[in-house]
Design a binder for these strands. Structure first.
Lengths: 399, 399
DNA sequence: CTTGAATGCTCAACTCAATTGAATTAAATC
DNA sequence: GATTTAATTCAATTGAGTTGAGCATTCAAG
């Protein structure tokens, strides 16, 4: 994941075809809710017979459930199939310098279990066993005859690899520099593991269970320690050559602006981020370290906080314009570790640029939307990523 | 292409598998130059027998050529196969308000023929027959028993659809607003047609025959009428939800900066673009309408042009930093309708930001590279896009 | 109320494109 | 020269999808 892998393009055979088709079917069931065999056959371009076989297999594995027959005009009513929420589970873990957040989700991405564990050290020797124990506990929480575990998603602070940008990142996690987390975690957990950054995971969470369930292309602005960005473009996750795409916090919005910890001036993060907010409020003698603090200030309509919001809105609006022009998304979503009401106010104050490719006559969605995120977003997103992998084939898209 | 199509994910069967595998083989032959059957089998994860069959088919269609056996250690030396340059051709067309550029390329993307045709009007009624005639002439230029025509790539100015941003775009092409160019051109030309914007086409040209042949992820900054951006990320073209991704010209680099034709202030295009250069030089009483003018000024080391370059470099450097942080590319390439020497000087003057995810210890390439582009880049890129489609499966990538 | 068209679905036979395993050829090494 | 290694082919097999006939169920027309 850190390293550039010269992506290997492989051929297909009957077996891989079957795997692909299974994913395609699960994907359609997810996005449509419920469907009959014949309709699935039409959607996928496969024969009804092939669909029958695939459905039979998925049903025997309890990944899908047969529902009532449903009448739609003439003809034999089709048996409606749906994803079985209890058909499988996935683990999600967020590793922070001082804590591990662990989540378990069902086959729809719904939360089954969450837990936060404080850690004294972020070395692999501490983190790995703690994560293992947390995952075991999460799995045992759902009782004895548990459904299959599809895998575990791990969220770690980026950027990956030794890059110029180290202000706030993996540097905070000691002892991981020359390790490959994917291998380490797979070793310990004994399930397939995927490692992603927080913003991407949050974006996937948003697409799986949040406010982007119908979107194929969107940008997710993630308020974490810094300011991250997860981009989904035409259904695909944008990672970049080294897995470091989406470093929104250090996009310059004001030439020669405020000095940032990265050494540059005018990074968006210095204006619009949790850090920026807490620094601003600290100067006014107020504490805003936690989300709770911010919520409290918000509740009493604190004028200083309002002032910060106004100040933060302009740089953000400019950055959103940039995202729109560069990525042409269906919408930009704001989420992460900020009180929802604060995000709402921030959105309300946004003075968006009028001339971007996203200003279109036929828009149905607002250009900027608040994400449906909570404090566990990244860990839940990591788990959702695993679910996501089971119904997104890396294959044959036709417009 | 303008409209958002809720991308349809389809299943696979034996036939589609074969098509996919053919593409995979062609893709590997393209990137490796020459390969034997056994090695191809290993690369693709297919059996040698399957590879033999695929190779036989491709050879019978003259898409590939058998070369000498080549000894590599023990064992029977493998017959080396290469793409047959003369195995197929593709058309590329750039439609501008006052001209049509037509190109024909061979199966490797090498130029076989180019032509520029002046047009009085850019209405469909004029453009379509002109393009048809130009393509016919291009094809007849290569003689009687011509290889199969894979298709035609068409480059038209974006943005697509009616968007807020109409400063310089399709608006210039009259009578196309409510038409679907893809359908119109396919009707007239009777070959598969793809429509793209200039920057994306140029990026593909760069990847096919230019300086990005080894790159899987890069950003191509295209100096055209305005300033465009083509993004290839992990081998895939980034289009955005409505095909308008990459509108780099209207990314704001200076808050409250120069007034742009789009109505905003501080767009990159107002500092760094052909238009910006010619306006700057006009104020100094010099004409720089054409590339030739610029080349001439450059040849005599014109101080005003030098001054413009210095002035243009800073905003561009900032934008490049943004691209690096958002897309995490292997490199940023500068190209398009600018004299190569000017691009070189511009690159030399760039004061790149030190803290982006692209600043890495293990870099081998420079962060910014000059593209190997000429005046036909977009049309050639359009043709290259068709070639590209024949060896890039939209399928199964494994890291 | 009956009958026929439309639609969902299954059965059985078939086909396509892969895989598997044995045989063949040619070079490198012993 | 004999042996090992590797590329390739031949022949048989297999996995997964397709095709076409037939049955079930519903709607709609007569």
């Amino acid at each position: 994941m850190h390293r550039k892998t010269p992506l290997k393009i492989i051929g297909s055979n009957a077996e891989r075809t079957r795997l692909h088709n299974r994913k395609v079917v699960l994907g359609h069931l997810r996005s449509h809710g419920k469907l009959g065999r014949a309709e699935l056959a039409r959607l996928t371009g496969l024969s009804t017979q092939a669909m029958s076989n695939i459905i039979a297999e998925l049903e025997s594995e309890a990944l899908i459930l047969a529902g009532e027959r449903q009448t739609k005009g003439r003809g034999l009513p089709a048996v409606q199939y749906t994803l079985n929420p209890a058909g499988a589970v996935a683990l999600g873990v967020e590793v922070r310098p001082n804590a591990i957040l662990c989540a378990l989700v069902n086959f729809l991405g719904d939360t089954l279990y969450t837990k936060r564990i404080h850690i004294e050290s972020s070395e692999p020797a501490v983190v790995l066993p703690t994560v293992k124990a947390a995952c075991d506990e999460a799995l045992s929480s759902i009782g004895k005859n548990a459904p299959p575990v599809l895998g575990a998603g791990i969220v770690m602070p980026g950027p990956f690899g030794r890059v110029g940008l180290t202000g706030a990142g993996k540097a905070e996690l000691v002892g991981w520099d020359d390790k490959d987390p994917q291998v380490l975690f797979e070793d310990v957990l004994q399930v397939p593991v995927r490692v992603e950054n927080d913003a991407t995971a949050a974006a996937i969470a948003e697409q799986t269970t949040g406010s982007a369930t119908d979107l194929q292309s969107f940008c997710f602005v993630y308020f974490g320690t810094g300011l991250g960005l997860g981009v989904i473009s035409n259904g695909e996750i944008l990672r970049g050559a080294f897995g470091n795409a989406g470093e929104l916090g250090h996009v310059v919005v004001e030439r020669g602006g405020r000095l940032c910890s990265c050494g540059n001036r005018g990074c968006l993060e210095t204006y619009t981020s949790r850090m920026a907010a807490s620094e601003f409020l600290q100067k006014r003698g107020k504490s805003a370290e936690s989300q709770k603090d911010l919520s409290d200030l918000l509740a009493v309509n604190d004028p200083d906080l309002d002032e910060w919001i106004c100040e933060a809105a302009d740089p953000l609006a400019q950055a959103i314009g940039t995202l729109e022009n560069l990525f042409d998304p269906e919408a930009v979503i704001l989420g992460g570790a900020m009180p929802p009401e604060l995000l709402e106010r921030l959105i309300a104050k946004l003075n968006l640029i009028d001339a971007t490719v996203s200003v279109r006559a036929d828009r149905t969605l607002p250009r900027v939307v608040r994400g449906a995120s909570g404090w566990m977003t990244a860990a839940l997103g990591a788990a959702a990523l695993i679910i996501h992998d089971t119904y997104i084939p890396s294959i044959s898209k036709v417009a």
